[in-house]
Amino acid sequence: MKALTIVAGVLLVFVFVWERVDVVRLGYQIERLKTQKILLERERDQLQVKVSALAAPERIAKVATEKLGLVPPQQGQVLMVHLPGEIPSLTPPPVELIRVARHDSIGRIRQ
């Protein structure tokens, strides 16, 4: 009985020490992960600034006109087409309404 009590006592001491050591170890791990999180967040923010700068309308317009040779649509080159829905239904109605600018050369689709 006495021996058993001693063994249990020693075990308890071991568990206590092990727990303390583990708490310290986990503490270090938490710190490491936190540092990693901060570094990743920093990188994310830097990338977000970069994305925003690259997506600036001024830059896109410059690349489009100077690099790709695009020009803004001239008068009458923009056609607004309003259709009832994006996805065509299975049984389309025989006649659809579309709106087109009058002065455009759209004889092809005019009835």
Binding site: P72, P73, Q75, V78, M80, H82, P92, P93, P94, V95, E96, L97, I98, R99, V100, A101, R102, H103, I109, R110, Q111
Partner: peptide
């Protein structure tokens, strides 16, 4: 005005509705 209206997708007054046979 011209560019902003196009960007906002505001329909021109002179657009006409025409029937298009599907």
């Amino acid at each position: 005005g011209e560019q902003v209206l196009t960007y906002l997708g505001v329909s021109r007054e002179d657009t006409v509705k025409i029937a298009l046979a599907m």
